[in-house]
Amino acid sequence: MNRPAEVKQPVVPVERPAALSTEARAGTVKSAVEGGADTPFRQALREFVANPFAVFGAVLLTLLVFGAIFAEALAPTNPYDLTKLDLMDALQPPGTQNMDGSVTFLLGTDGQGRDMLSAMLYGLRTSILVGVSSGVIALCVGATIGIVAAFFGGWIDSFVMRIVDLQLSFPSILVAMVLLALLGQGVDKIILALVIVQWAYYARTVRSAALVERSKEYVEAAICLGIGRTPVMFRHMLRNCLPPLIVIATVQVGSAISLEATLSFLGLGLPVTKPSLGLLISNGFAFLMSGKYWISLYPGVLLLVTIIAINLVGDHLRDILNPRLKR
């Protein structure tokens, strides 16, 4: 997300082994990606920049995140300030002119006279917040479980993978729906449900990457040197499992945003007081049949653009980071 920071990262002296120099900053995917000033990272960055679609997706994504973070400053009105709402403004089509020819509601208003553009910016923030936070938590949980399963093997491994297989054999929307029926509505509830839905993908990915690393000599060497199991797993092995993890994380955040929108549309996700893009679309559904398209259409376009931007980036990250394609 924070692209300029990558460039400003201090270059780590080359003579130090890469494994040690980046050790201090390991832990999160972001720091590992940005901090690795070693050649593979630069090479990946160069390959990434060479693809116009990927750069387009990355720029678009940066703009969207910027818009979501600074929604208060950018939105023309505060859509949730009830004192500012006027029912006289309800259901104005996009670009309706005031008496003096100026335009207050660029993208029209909804049934309560709320400015759609402002509601969309606030909604985007909720959508991205839910998608990213559930993705990050699921990544931490899934990666930990996956790497522990791969490291210890035996019954722990088969037990964990049975659960993963079982869960992945059911579609995520069904699992999330049942969970939300149990948990009720709320931002924390939907994040929890999305974490439970997603952790298995991360666990499976990390496990299969870690199994390969487990048999390598550096792990053997680290264990022989008397380094504890935890540092071996999380400092040494996890770093080498990062490429597939980054790819799956990108894709999963996109699908989490989409899933949240779908659940909110069905009335199972977020409370009405904190509408995401999905809930905005759902609100507009009632007006769709009478041709008042803008209430559903524009939040949907924004949702689509967000997901496409994420998928463009994810798709090309996969091409870059997949060693099988480099033969």
Binding site: G254, S258, A261, T262, F265, L266, G278, I281, F285, L288, S296, L297, G300, L303, L304, I307, I308, N311
Partner: peptide, 11 residues
């Protein structure tokens, strides 16, 4: 892949 099912339905 990117289009959420429910939104495509609306469109």
């Amino acid at each position: 892949f990117s289009m959420p099912t429910f939104w495509v339905g609306l469109i």
